[in-house]
Write a protein that binds this DNA or RNA. Structure first.
Lengths: 337, 337
DNA sequence: GGTCGGCAAGACAGCGCTGTCAATTGCTCT
DNA sequence: AGAGCAATTGACAGCGCTGTCTTGCCGACC
């Protein structure tokens, strides 16, 4: 209860508080023997420096902000997990904030926020990472940020991303490998860069395999269950059906699955299905969904590490690319199998 | 950039910094005219007090901790949303921490955490809210907490909860109202208090309606998709089937749905199905799941409000009960309809 | 042997705010 | 009009730590 302060440690170790401070902050000019003595005292007293005092006196706050404005619980949750784990390792703390505002209101809120609590850096998740006014506000306050999967102004800040294009390419190859030649694709919102990348990956893979991409086989969805449902009705409600459908995200894939069930189209017997994201829903349906797992948590982890200055290789390129994973479950199988 | 301090405001308003402080903290003994002048200066300069300095000098830190150790993204996400909204309204900030530890390690981590950043209160979500060692550690540090849906030691702290028993009762009544008399129930883990409450509510409703609760109609699940699947196979794989199944949570209900699909049992034509939680998955299947919506976000909001001292009625009982909602979707319908 | 250079460690002054206590003001009451 | 009292306001000392500057010390070098 009676909080231990740096003075207690200094007294115990027989040094000045400044020396304790130096040890704690890994500053140079401390003899190894002295350092050991201090560390022993710290351990003995179980001392933890007070974050508020540090923030007030010094230039660091040991706080990392995580800003989001994304209704997807699964995504946010993974991001948080990753960011938190990196913060913990670096002795930092995670402050989360939802920023539903846009435009001037956003700028204001961010300014207010940052003047109240100084942050050593913030992590921006989609779609915030592409909000120019936010980037401006952050830059104006001099707060560094790392963006996750940004799509514009890539030069403005370090960022972490996954190669949607290549992932979609490989998923398409997976379906082709199962014998599918007539594969339909349901794409996401037109203004969504990642959606476009996925579609490009799909089309490239088809071309590379010498397969045609029939226009009626590419449907425009909206990344929602319902839009997947609607596209599926168009794709499946005739005798001329594709043997496989690759949906641009899992929600839409689940919409396809619902329609297939209603029409008694067997998955994966008659129709193979693949999604993208490995959302929580992908495993609570039957058959479980073949999908692309994004390294979401890992991206956040890297982002946080970049901010806390404990990155594995700090001098890597500004854009850090992480690997996806093709998760093959029961919804895709050999054609006609 | 050149941060504005309380001195700037004081100078602008022509008062001492202490008076500004008083206004900001809503302390008494400030003449309305003075208060207005100060507030005008605050507005003009767009001043926000520095949280670190406040925390260091005063007894409050304006930080609320949200501790969790729950793999359910949907739940956490809602909790966070609710807690954040209440914090924002009260001028507080939300610090999230995952505490995977148990026993002594938990105690230690919490102590370390709290000695580094003082928190004005913490919100404990299930299952952490029932970890005695955590409650002890918090009490030892003198940090108040509010628990969400705790099941033990109800007197130890204020808490917020929902009446699982009554919710299950009403869902059962809903199914009965559709004409179902042979209803099966899939319960959750035996040591899970909420699961037991739900089961009790179901059984009570059956008794009150004069309907038998046949032992083979109550199956032991584990709150997972797979366990729902297994229970459903036992319940549905014979001619003597219930006309409705009420699963103790949505994941299990989805397992039931998967089996029904496989067996070509029409939902809701032949079998009505109800879940509990209104998890994200409940809406990305077809038919969409009839379920019980827990006021998760609202519970967190109330919890945070309790902590930040801005509760609607602070002197209400220690346990604040919030209302659930029966969400009727397509998976339940009139028997034989 | 004296002086310089550099490492190690300490003294000291705040960071921006709140708590305490003292000083001032503005009223009421007689 | 003056005393008496509460309502206002301000002066000042830290909260626990880090940044800057200073001091002490040892070996190297000429």
């Amino acid at each position: 209860m009676a909080a231990i302060t740096i003075d207690d440690v200094a007294a115990r170790a027989g040094v000045s508080i400044k020396t304790v401070s130096r040890v704690l902050n890994r500053e140079p000019h401390v003899r190894p023997a002295t350092r050991d003595r201090v560390l022993a005292a710290v351990d003995l007293l179980n001392y933890r420096p007070n974050a508020s005092a540090r923030a007030l006196a010094g230039s660091r706050s040991y706080l990392v902000g995580l800003f989001f404005d994304n209704p997807s619980p699964g995504y946010n949750s993974q991001i948080e997990q990753g960011a938190m784990s990196a913060c913990r390792d670096a002795g930092y703390f995670l402050l989360v904030e939802q920023l539903p505002e846009t435009g001037a209101a956003l700028r204001e809120r961010v300014a207010a926020l940052l003047s109240a609590v100084r942050m050593d850096g913030v992590i921006l998740t989609p779609p915030l990472c592409d909000r120019t006014e936010l980037l401006d506000a952050l830059a104006g306050e001099g707060v560094p940020c790392v963006r996750i999967a940004p799509t514009i102004d890539l030069g403005r800040s370090p960022f972490v991303y996954m190669d949607d294009r290549r992932a979609a390419y490989e998923m398409t190859v997976h379906l082709q490998g199962l014998g599918h030649r007539d594969i339909a694709f349901i794409t996401g919102p037109a203004d969504h860069r990642a959606a476009a990348n996925r579609r490009e990956g799909f089309e490239q893979a088809m071309r590379d395999a010498g397969l045609p991409v029939r226009p009626e086989r590419v449907r425009q969805g909206a990344f929602s269950f319902l839009s997947g449902w609607e596209c599926a009705e168009q794709l499946l409600d005739s005798a001329d059906r594709p043997t496989a459908i690759f949906a641009g995200n899992d929600d839409m894939a689940l919409g396809v699955m619902a329609v297939a069930n209603r029409l008694h189209i067997d998955i994966p017997g008659t129709l193979s299905l693949a999604g993208f994201d490995d959302s929580p829903g992908a495993q609570v349906v039957w058959p479980q969904l073949t999908t692309v797992r994004q390294p979401v948590a890992q991206m956040a982890q890297v982002a946080a590490a970049l901010l806390t200055g404990a990155p594995p290789d700090r001098d890597a390129a500004r854009g850090r690319q992480l690997d996806f994973e093709i998760v093959v479950r029961q919804s895709s199988a050999v054609r006609g199998g």
